[in-house]
């Protein structure tokens, strides 16, 4: 499997993501700087968590206008899988590769805690190893995870099964509409989520609940 992790100024979960991908899939990803304008042929592109450009203007806004984004857009349109976690999710919405937007948490507080995450759709290349409606404990760490979409977009997301992860059992940490934690594009090859499955892939991290995501990637993309 050929995977790449895009590094932006202020990315800070890039090495966690590289570790998780290497550990679970056995394939080490390439690390690619955001200033590049071309990408090699890939099976998976990952936009990692962090605080690209210090969240200036809006979280992910400046990174979404990086030179590398045109190449990511081209590959995404060809069906290459794209995964954005946390800041990566924010960048994907800002780049309009995913619908909706991520706003300041309703509490106005940075949240760093474990939430319960329900897998709403396990028929994606990223979630096929999860059980239907499986609920896992998973960490979140963000200030701008309050997902918003207008009623029409929201109805389409619900109808098309594009809502892949939802916060469960009253653990919504940010006021996100319909408890949305992760969505795909209409085609299903671009996924963004706020929680951090890459930080739960071996027992020393406190659990392995995040592994099925990477096992799904290995099954479907290699």
């Amino acid at each position: 499997m050929k995977a790449a992790i895009i590094q932006f100024p202020g990315s800070n979960r890039d090495t966690d993501m590289a570790h998780a991908l290497s550990l679970v899939t056995g394939y080490a990803p390439r690390m690619i700087w955001h200033g590049e304008t071309a990408l090699p042929p890939l099976d998976l592109i990952v936009l990692p968590g962090g605080f690209s450009y210090g969240d200036y203007l809006r979280a992910g806004a400046i990174a979404a206008r990086s030179p590398i984004l045109d190449a990511i857009r081209t590959q995404a349109e060809r069906g290459v899988a794209v995964l954005g976690v946390c800041n990566g999710f924010q960048i994907l919405t800002e780049a309009q590769l995913l619908p909706g937007g991520l706003m300041r948490n309703a509490s106005l507080k940075f949240v760093c805690r474990t939430v319960q995450l329900q897998v709403e759709n396990n028929r994606t290349p990223f979630t096929s190893r999860f059980l239907p409606n499986q609920i896992i404990d998973c960490p979140v760490a963000h200030h701008d995870g309050n997902y918003f979409a207008d009623p029409r977009t929201l109805a389409a997301l619900e109808e098309n099964g594009q809502i892949v992860f939802r916060y469960a059992n009253g653990t919504n940490p940010n006021g996100s509409i319909n408890d949305i934690a992760g969505v795909t594009n209409r085609q299903g090859n671009v996924l963004g989520l706020m929680p951090h499955p890459e930080n739960l892939v071996e027992p020393s991290q406190g659990g392995t609940n995040g592994r099925p995501l990477f096992e799904s990637i290995l099954d479907n993309l290699s």
Binding site: L57, A61, R65, G101, F148, A149, D150
Partner: peptide, 9 residues
């Protein structure tokens, strides 16, 4: 349209 506002929100 291109940067200063996110017209989704």
């Amino acid at each position: 349209e291109k940067l200063l506002a996110n017209t989704v929100i």
